[in-house]
Write a protein that binds this DNA or RNA. Sequence first.
DNA 1: ACTGTGACACAGG
DNA 2: CCCTGTGCCACAG
Length: 105
Amino acid sequence: MSGERFAERVHALVARIPSGNVATYGDLAAYAGRPRAARQAGYAMHRCPPGLPWHRVINAQGRLSVAAGSTAWLTQRRRLEEEGVVFMGGRIELARYRWAGPNED
DNA sequence: ACTGTGACACAGG
DNA sequence: CCCTGTGCCACAG
């Protein structure tokens, strides 16, 4: 566990986010034991291995952190909406969909 | 070992 | 609402 790479812990956490829920980069960093490494969680997601529900990771403002209009952006938004997540003014209501963490799932 | 980087976060203005 | 500056820190080269 301790020798595990931070990015691997983040990826393992992403795999556990339930459908219909989302987690911010800061949340993932905190759940991974590094509360101030949100930026690094973003780095880890940029290099996200295939097969993970990466679309459930957004920023603290309830917005998607990929380039707006890009195919990735379209895919992320479509997948979230398919899971029941509602966008209002390009944002989602975090308080409503935020994943409570690995100890609550 | 050191440096630049970045799918972040938050406080200001 | 937008934009800017600052703190942050694991990771790649």
